[in-house]
Design a protein around this nucleic acid. Structure first.
Lengths: 121, 121
DNA sequence: CTTTTATTCAACCATATGGTTGACTGACCG
DNA sequence: CGGTCAGTCAACCATATGGTTGAATAAAAG
């Protein structure tokens, strides 16, 4: 189950509050990247990029594997799921899909057996 | 359609990166609250709470209506929807629902006309 | 009109953030 | 071994953040 601890959420949302870091995550969504590869698109110094990566890492959003002299990063979706989960609480405020909720609450008779529940962690 | 501008997302995620502000949003999910009401649960000064509220406001997460000498705040879910939308991109990394994606990509023949697409804004 | 009440504003403070540069550590190369 | 490459670390800087207190504004109450 998703824990949603305030400490974690603070770090996660803070990490997401920066374009550079969000773009780095987008990059990592396509696969593993080294620190150098992640830093390359930006005009900042490698040290600055390294700091961004550390922020992502301490927020738990990425994992790092030291492979020889290079550090290979990959996405860790867990914290993103927590953030998503937090936001889901407010989903009713922007969707008109209360009908869907209602449909889920009753009516097990019409459910599709291929995929019923995929939201727990 | 959700714009997902970097400026907006920066402000939104930054605003969400603080427990106090997240709790204020939770409070506002139950209805309108004055600045004083929002500040009351916390041991910080009213001025500090006022700053938090301003952060939420400039991020577009809340709207303020000056009613006499009190300022009444209410939730504006739009930016939350943007943040949610941004996170949805990564949903495939924590759910095993690739089959659903696959089903959407091909097979228009099997689609259910009652609820097909509700994610655009 | 004077006093509360609700809230912001301004000045200030400590710490965090994001950036820089230069030195340092380790791994690979010749 | 000596050089280069990948990346971190440390010191430093400017600005932002979150908090404080005290004064200012403006509406309601007496």
């Amino acid at each position: 189950m998703v824990e949603l601890q305030t400490v974690e959420l603070n770090a996660v949302f803070h990490a997401l509050g920066d374009v550079t870091r969000r773009q780095m995550l987008r990059e990592l969504a396509d696969g593993e990247r080294t620190v150098g590869q992640l830093a390359e698109p930006y005009e900042i110094s490698l040290a600055a990029a390294s700091k961004h990566i550390k922020v992502l890492e301490t927020a738990g959003l990425i994992r790092r594997e030291v492979r020889g002299r290079t550090h290979v990063c990959r996405l860790d979706p867990g914290p993103l799921a927590s953030a998503h989960q937090w936001l889901v609480f407010y989903e009713r405020f922007w969707t008109g899909r209360l009908d869907v909720l209602e449909r889920l609450l009753r009516a097990e008779d019409t459910e599709d057996p291929t995929e019923t529940n995929g939201d727990e962690e």
